[in-house]
Nucleic acid binder design. Structure first.
Lengths: 146, 146
DNA sequence: CGCCCACATGCAAACGTATTGCAAGAAGAT
DNA sequence: ATCTTCTTGCAATACGTTTGCATGTGGGCG
């Protein structure tokens, strides 16, 4: 019968502790805000969104970095030279195989699970410089922004 | 019998004038430097590379912007929040944008001119979200960092 | 060939985001 | 309850990007 609020709060608590981070006010607030938000969030947007809580901007910045280091959020760059962060899906363990598509307009990130990318190098071009490709990023315009 | 130096200089002159830009010392120097360089170049790197010419940094910055507006260079973003510019291939009319490879260790950026990327979408996956792919970014580990 | 004007340069400064130093404060293990 | 270590708050710095403005210059035109 526990209210959902405290339930999710406990979940966040476990999430933080499990990641080796202390459970503090700012961090819980950040995670909570991420849960209500779809899509990447910049540091500035986060500061403004939590302005009423009056957390220090540097604290929130470091929180984002820490959460990224703990694997709870991803840091993405949609091409406007501003770091953005998004809650990382905890369910999917391996996400390395499929390419990601980033819309340069709305910044939405799409996992192209079904898309296969085939690289056909000319002799001596790819092999000479590239050892291993770990991530494939496609940038462009999504249908909605077209 | 004209020396190749003056020949290419004339070519650059025509390139600039043809693009509607005045032929000035800084602009010629920028284009010349791009010709000797493989891969994208940041503003800071360009300033340092042409330090002996003692051009103003703001001038070089505006040159990059102007050259981009004239279609002579492309502006790319490899994910480190720094704008980079590369000479645009004038021969290929259809945007044959080559993919870029970024080493996640040393940060070196490589133009994979010869690499062709073929996307084979499963039915209804790519078309539904992606309208147009404008940039392809491959991240991984380069040979030297392996 | 020289004039003239729009465009380009140089210099300085503003700006926004990213990043760090340090002392005070809080979390959580014992 | 205490103590250690991590975190916060505040300030200041670093860095790339961008702009204002006065001066200088390319190149078209007479």
């Amino acid at each position: 019968m526990a209210p959902s609020k405290s339930t999710s709060l406990d979940a966040l608590r476990d999430l933080l502790r499990g990641a080796g981070l202390r459970c503090t006010g700012p961090r819980v607030a950040v995670l909570q805000h991420f849960q209500t938000r779809r899509g990447p969030l910049s540091h500035g947007e986060l500061v403004e969104a939590l302005a009423d809580r009056e957390f220090d901007a540097a604290t929130l910045y470091r929180n984002l970095i820490d959460l990224e280091g703990a694997g709870l959020v991803n840091r993405v760059n949609v091409g406007d030279n501003v770091w953005r962060f998004e809650l990382r899906d905890q369910d999917t363990e391996t996400q390395s195989e499929h390419p990601h598509f980033v819309c340069v307009e709305c910044g939405e990130i799409t996992c192209l699970d079904q898309v296969r990318v085939k690289l056909t190098p000319a002799p001596g071009s790819l092999k000479s410089v590239v050892n291993r490709v770990s991530e494939i990023l496609l940038k462009g315009q999504c249908m909605r922004c077209a």
